[in-house]
Amino acid sequence: MKSEIIIAGFGGQGVLSMGKILAYAALFEGKEVTWMPSYGPEQRGGTANVTVIVSDEKISSPILSEYDTAIILNQPSLDKFESKIKPGGNLIYDPYGISTPPQRTDINVYRINAMDVAAEMANVKAFNMLVLGGFLNVCPVVSITNVLKALHKTLPQRHHNLIPLNEEALKRGNEAISPVSQA
């Protein structure tokens, strides 16, 4: 079993840390994993993306041109990556900030109103964990238990009081995702 995932959005949305938490959770599952970020000036307010590969077997290339799943959090990322999803693959997007919705009919499209739920929770920082929760509903590549373990590992000790909030976000995200169209 191998999942090739791209997460893309604006710098500051928590794209890289979402990928990092997913990668750590995969590590705790005993799986092979690579985390390859875009790096450089484009992260400051521009687009940021990270490729995460989770596999039962050793991973060759950390760089890919097609993905099983794309998690898309802004319009430039949708424009860039919609065409790069494998037929039959998944596209997960938050309509907030998307002006032209996805067009493809040979992939499964899911929508998650993570920004709205984050506003309801009155905590915009929960945004990326809402999206991750939604993703794990569609592709349960790692367990929520291991995601929580990953949060413990990646968050500095002084932020561990935020873990219950993140747990709630994962749960609400898990429920907030819905299919738009199926291949």
């Binding site: 990092k20 990668a23 590590l27 092979e32 994993v33 690579t34 985390w35 390859m36 970020p37 790096y39 991973i59 950390p62 760089i63």
Partner: peptide, 10 residues
Amino acid sequence: DGVIGQMMEK
């Protein structure tokens, strides 16, 4: 190179 330097793996 930048790939091996920047990527995370086990």
